[in-house]
Computed example of a mutant assay.
Amino acid sequence: MHTKLLAALLLTLSWQAFGAEGRPTHYQVTRPMQIQQQLKAAYLAKGVGYRPRTEHLEADGSPRYLNRLILEDSPYLLQHAHNPVDWYPWGEAAFAKAKRENKPIFLSIGYSTCHWCHVMERESFENESIARFLNEHFIAIKVDRESHPDIDETYMTAVMLMTGPAAGRCRAC
């Protein structure tokens, strides 16, 4: 039942992403100029050899989206630096924003070589309509479980206590 509900929600969100011409609509997050400049400087500092890992590219090959994960060192977080989701790394800035805007946290924990993390990114976090929904209704936080095993352990324990061990991490993770 949960799978059918999730599939219906994702299909609805995907349809909302298309404009009157049947082409995907462009979606952009609005941030303070200081943050935008900091993110752009971090992207440019990566150098000419840096290749954004995204399907959303401008004509010149630059990424259409840039979020706070570009400021991080973790390979896993950097993989998501060009998602349309306005990701925050784990930290006080994300929690302060959630409190200030009275929004719940959308927490995603994974790591760079996990197959299912890549599938989730491709099917959900790269989708502009899903990103729009997440950005409007949640503060999205991305955690690299290899950098923060303590956070991973805490949340996996909570999930297993609430739903049973079968709902825990996938066998590949």
Rank of each mutant, 00 (worst) to 15 (best):
I70K: 09
R31C: 00
L69E: 01
L57N: 05
L13I: 10
A41W: 01
G168D: 06
L10W: 10
P32V: 00
E123V: 02
R53H: 10
I141K: 12
V29H: 13
Q79L: 10
A8N: 12
F18L: 12
A81D: 07
L134M: 10
A166G: 01
A96H: 06
D86I: 00
L9Q: 10
F95M: 08
C114P: 03
H148G: 05
K46H: 01
N102H: 14
Q34Y: 00
R68Q: 06
I139G: 09
L71C: 02
I35Q: 05
E153G: 12
L13C: 12
H82T: 08
H56D: 00
H118G: 05
S124C: 15
A93N: 02
A45F: 07
F18G: 04
V143I: 09
R23K: 11
V159E: 05
W15Y: 12
A59Q: 15
V85C: 11
G19M: 05
H137C: 08
M156E: 15
A94L: 07
H2Y: 08
A96R: 10
D150G: 13
A20Q: 10
V159A: 04
I139S: 02
N67R: 04
S62E: 06
A42N: 03
T30G: 04
M1H: 08
C114M: 07
E58Q: 07
N83P: 11
M156H: 04
A81G: 14
T25F: 06
D144V: 06
V143M: 01
M160K: 15
H26K: 15
G61C: 06
A131Y: 00
T54I: 03
F106E: 03
E55I: 11
S147V: 12
S14F: 15
I105Y: 15
L10I: 05
G61F: 11
Y50F: 00
R145G: 12
L39M: 10
